[in-house]
Nucleic acid binder design. Sequence first.
DNA 1: GACTAAGCGAGACGGTACGTCGCGTCTTAAA
DNA 2: TTTAAGACGCGACGTACCGTCTCGCTTAGTC
Lengths: 197, 197, 197, 197
Amino acid sequence: MTAVGADTPRGDRGRRALILDATRELLVEGGVQNLTIEGVAARAGVAKTTIYRRWRSKDELAFAVLLELIDLLAVPDVGNTRNELVYLVESVIRVLSTTLMGAVMQGLVSDLASDPELQGAFRAQVVGARVGELRGVVQRGIARGDVRPDTDADLMYELLLGPVYFRLLLSGGPLEADLARQLVDSVLPGFAPSPTP
Amino acid sequence: MTAVGADTPRGDRGRRALILDATRELLVEGGVQNLTIEGVAARAGVAKTTIYRRWRSKDELAFAVLLELIDLLAVPDVGNTRNELVYLVESVIRVLSTTLMGAVMQGLVSDLASDPELQGAFRAQVVGARVGELRGVVQRGIARGDVRPDTDADLMYELLLGPVYFRLLLSGGPLEADLARQLVDSVLPGFAPSPTP
Amino acid sequence: MTAVGADTPRGDRGRRALILDATRELLVEGGVQNLTIEGVAARAGVAKTTIYRRWRSKDELAFAVLLELIDLLAVPDVGNTRNELVYLVESVIRVLSTTLMGAVMQGLVSDLASDPELQGAFRAQVVGARVGELRGVVQRGIARGDVRPDTDADLMYELLLGPVYFRLLLSGGPLEADLARQLVDSVLPGFAPSPTP
Amino acid sequence: MTAVGADTPRGDRGRRALILDATRELLVEGGVQNLTIEGVAARAGVAKTTIYRRWRSKDELAFAVLLELIDLLAVPDVGNTRNELVYLVESVIRVLSTTLMGAVMQGLVSDLASDPELQGAFRAQVVGARVGELRGVVQRGIARGDVRPDTDADLMYELLLGPVYFRLLLSGGPLEADLARQLVDSVLPGFAPSPTP
DNA sequence: GACTAAGCGAGACGGTACGTCGCGTCTTAAA
DNA sequence: TTTAAGACGCGACGTACCGTCTCGCTTAGTC
């Protein structure tokens, strides 16, 4: 079942990857809902204890898989704030709707609220990266005069992606490409510089 | 299956309420996470089967409690679209942060995605009511000339409340009263009539 | 579902028969093991209470069916004690192996021990009838000089049928026709008159 | 499945004994009828799963207790076939009427018929041992000229013990010591050598 | 012919036990 | 020392029937 001889090339790295691979497979097959430590152990050909030694819960395990999915996109400077924002939101929508990430988020979200540590990690590693990127866009927009100087990037982030997550997690509404444009066009005016005469 | 309204002469309504009360108590004490059918049965002094006869899962049970929490607020016409929107968003924030609803939402959200029936009920009964209310506000706004006539109330709803749910469910950000004002002020300009001269 | 108008020809008799028929069918399908009052009620198109009104347990119900199966055979006087005994034993074997009776006995036997009332009924109505018949055969045998005058018919009954029930209930040994002959031939010498010269 | 003999280093034997002890106690208190896996688990201070891991049903569990009760008596050669047979039958009667075995048999018998595996075990381990013993007695009897050479030990076994089980299971008749003598005296003549002139 | 009371179907109910699942802990033996 | 293997106590699951208990609705039988 396990590839003897090859399953411990670096001993640790190999075993860790083995487990994450099995987790990913099982996530694809049944979602976080049906993910079990026992299942991962069986699939990975690993003892349960080996998993517990590294992750405290199946949530952490799923979160570890999730972290590997985030492609730290850099929004290119195209000289146009609106387009850059659309690009950013589209990227998030794409990842959520075409990779495991959407499904994992759905399964994990209930545990986020009850596990501060997990929530902290989410905020730091998922939200943080994207807000950082957005901050860059905003900065460039301010420089260009497209965006008001006192713009709160965190708030803008929530306005742009709150609706996306709302659809993903709550309403089940469609995560289509055009949504990015709609959101940006509705939100951007709120952060436009006042038309100083 | 049974004639609703007729099969509830007495004793039924009472039993139903008994169970929901117990559920509510246990939700307060431990959240959806720690809610168990056995626990509810014990607390309500009722057999497990009696619960299973009415609700198919603890999610449905928790959702039933949640439904009772929605106060179908009517946003009063104060002659000012901005204030009306703030009022609406504030109401939602208040319910989420001061009643069980926030905690129940956190616990249920992961199951929404995997239970289409539950999600449908959520969309119809929770989102539906609020969007309906918002639609009224928008209509009045259009009449007043505060809001663009082609405004998509659903989108506006997502923009106003997406960020609220984002904080509640994902980032753990504060659900403070002032948030409503910030959101409305950022969103409203996107729906303002073009200043056609 | 029930034949309206026809299901209460005599009101009581009809309903009683209905229930016993359903019981018999279910006994055929699944044995006493899988017999349930709920199943009988459903099959008979009758409320559970109607059954409980007449029989206190599913054992009594099964026993009622069993009683209907006993054909009160009369062993004919063929002028030959051995043949008469073989006939009697063969009859019992036939009933046990070709009708429901065997299966019902297997299912009921464990409850006999714990339900004195049921055991009394069994002893009186099943054993009693057969021992009575045997007593007649023995009497004729004594008259003919084939059987010792002090013969204990009860003991002979146990010797002849104990092995049959042993196979039916315990060892699962075959209940074949020839068994009757073997048993009689082994038992009869023990009750033969002493060859007083 | 696991290597027998190796998976019982310590702690296993102990746990097994713990469960069987609890089972025995509960059998004494309420018979097979009232034996429940949950009850055994509670009494033994053991999880239900631990029981299910070793026995598939409460019948197997009760049977395991029963097996421990069989004292593999060896019938001594007293130079007298009749006395040896009486000794053998008396032993069985004694075990059935003075130990748990009788009650357990009563409770188990209905399940024997519907569980071929259990019945096989019964035939092999309970009947088998006794028939083996009987076979020895018969052999000695043949050597002595007390018993016909073509004697079928299995049939003799059924004749001698069928009536005993008949009383235990069906008629509730008394299992007294004298019964052994009566049975042997009635059965033995049927297996006596023909009085060759 | 109307009225009562019994019997009935339907099925909800509290309850017991079932057999299963997966948890997270722990022990053992091999590497 | 780390591992796989897997037994274990535990808590909850959702189900099956139990025997009891209202409920109206028939349906005789009596006045």
